[in-house]
C-alpha cells in the first residue's frame, strides 16, 4: 500500500486550522454548518483510512487468505509492513468505536436523567421554570424538552431581555443545534485533531441563536444587553463557584465576543471575503486530497488482493 492511505490521517491537522479560520470569517449559520460538515467528512475519511490499514492486515490471516484464494507470500512482498501497521490501526479503530459508543450512551442517559428531573416542575407551553435563585438557562432537546430557566434568571432580566432569552433558546431547539454539537463530538472521537472544531462550533451555535433572537425582537442592541446581563447575573449567582482572580486570559471569553458581535453591523455586511475565499480554497483542497487519497488507497488494496489471487492461482505449494 502506498502513501495515499496516510493522507486522511494527516490532513485533519491542516484542515482543522483552515476550517476554524474560515468559520471565523463567516456569518454564524454557514460557519456552524461548515464546521460540522468539515468535522463529519474528515472523521469519515480518517475512519476509512484506519479500516483500510486494518483490512490489509486481516488479509494475512490464514482463514481469510484461504477463503479469498490469496497468496500470503505475495501479499508479504507487495506490502511488507502491513501486519504491524494493521494491528495498530485495528486497535485505534477499536478505540474509536468504544469512544463513539460511550458518547452515544452518555448522551442518551443524560437526556433520560434530565427529563426525569424536569418532571414536577413549574411548566407551561415549552417552558420549565426551576425555583432556584441562581441564574441559569438551557435549551433541552427532545420530547419533554423545551426551554429551562431558573427563577433567578427571570428576576435578573427585564421583560424585553427575557423575550431575547426565550427567543435564543427556541432558536437552539428549532435549529436542532444539539445534533450539530453531538455530530462534532462523535467526529472528535474519530481523530484527535477534530477536537479543535468543537469549541468554535459551540461558539457559532450560540452566535446563531443570538442573531435569531435579535431578529425576533428586532433590536440587536437589546439582544446584546440581554446576553451581557444574563452572563453577569449567572456569574454573580450564589451557585457560581469562585473564579480564579489575577492572570488575565489572552483572549476574551465567548460571552464578551458574542455581545461585541451583536453591537456591530450584522454579520453579512462584514468580513473580508477575499480572505474567506482563499481559506476555503485551502479547506476544499484538503478535503479533496483526503478523499482522493482514500479512494486511491482503496484501489491499491484491491490491486494487492488481485495480485495475491493471481499468485495463488499458480501452484499452491506442497
Amino acid at each position: 500500500m502506498t502513501w495515499a492511505v496516510w493522507a486522511p490521517l494527516i490532513i485533519p491537522f491542516l484542515a482543522v486550522p483552515a476550517a476554524r479560520r474560515l468559520a471565523a470569517a463567516l456569518p454564524p449559520r454557514p460557519a456552524a454548518l461548515l464546521l460540522v460538515a468539515a468535522a463529519g467528512a474528515l472523521a469519515c475519511l480518517s475512519g476509512a483510512a484506519l479500516a483500510l490499514l486494518a483490512g490489509a492486515a486481516v488479509l494475512r490471516l490464514p482463514v481469510v487468505a484461504s477463503l479469498g484464494h490469496l497468496s500470503v507470500p505475495l501479499l508479504e512482498r507487495v506490502a511488507p509492513a502491513a501486519v504491524p501497521v494493521g494491528v495498530v490501526a485495528a486497535v485505534a479503530a477499536g478505540a474509536v468505536a468504544v469512544a463513539v459508543a460511550r458518547v452515544l450512551h452518555g448522551h442518551r442517559a443524560a437526556r433520560v436523567r434530565v427529563a426525569r428531573e424536569l418532571a414536577g416542575h413549574s411548566r407551561a407551553g415549552d417552558l420549565t421554570v426551576l425555583p432556584d435563585e441562581g441564574a441559569d438557562a438551557y435549551a433541552l432537546p427532545g420530547r419533554p424538552g423545551g426551554v429551562v430557566v431558573t427563577a433567578g434568571m427571570l428576576r435578573g432580566l427585564d421583560a424585553d431581555e427575557r423575550a431575547v432569552l426565550l427567543a435564543h433558546e427556541r432558536a437552539h431547539l428549532t435549529g436542532r443545534h444539539h445534533l450539530l454539537l453531538l455530530l462534532a463530538r462523535l467526529a472528535a472521537c474519530a481523530h484527535p485533531a477534530l477536537r479543535g472544531l468543537r469549541e468554535p462550533l459551540a461558539f457559532q451555535v450560540e452566535r446563531w441563536a443570538d442573531e435569531a433572537a435579535a431578529a425576533v425582537v428586532g433590536d440587536r442592541r437589546l439582544a446584546a444587553r440581554a446576553v451581557a446581563r444574563a452572563a453577569l447575573a449567572a456569574s454573580a449567582a450564589p451557585t457560581g463557584r469562585l473564579r480564579p482572580a489575577g492572570a488575565l486570559p489572552a483572549a476574551a471569553g465567548p460571552v464578551p465576543r458574542r455581545v461585541a458581535a451583536l453591537l456591530v453591523a450584522p454579520p453579512l455586511a462584514r468580513g473580508s471575503f477575499a480572505r474567506a475565499r482563499s481559506v476555503s480554497a485551502v479547506l476544499l483542497a484538503c478535503l479533496l486530497v483526503s478523499g482522493a487519497a482514500a479512494a486511491e488507497a482503496t484501489t491499491d488494496l484491491h490491486e494487492d488482493i488481485e495480485t495475491a489471487q493471481a499468485g495463488s492461482a499458480a501452484p499452491a505449494g506442497p
Partner: peptide, 25 residues
C-alpha cells in the same frame, strides 16, 4: 455529557470577561 444535551444560554465568565462585559453593557 451536558454539552450535547443542552446548550446553556451563557457560559461561565472569567474575571477579565466580567470587566469587558460591563464596558460592552
Amino acid at each position: 455529557d451536558r454539552q450535547g444535551v443542552l446548550a446553556r444560554f451563557v457560559s461561565r465568565l472569567s474575571s477579565a470577561d466580567e470587566i469587558v462585559l460591563r464596558e460592552l453593557l
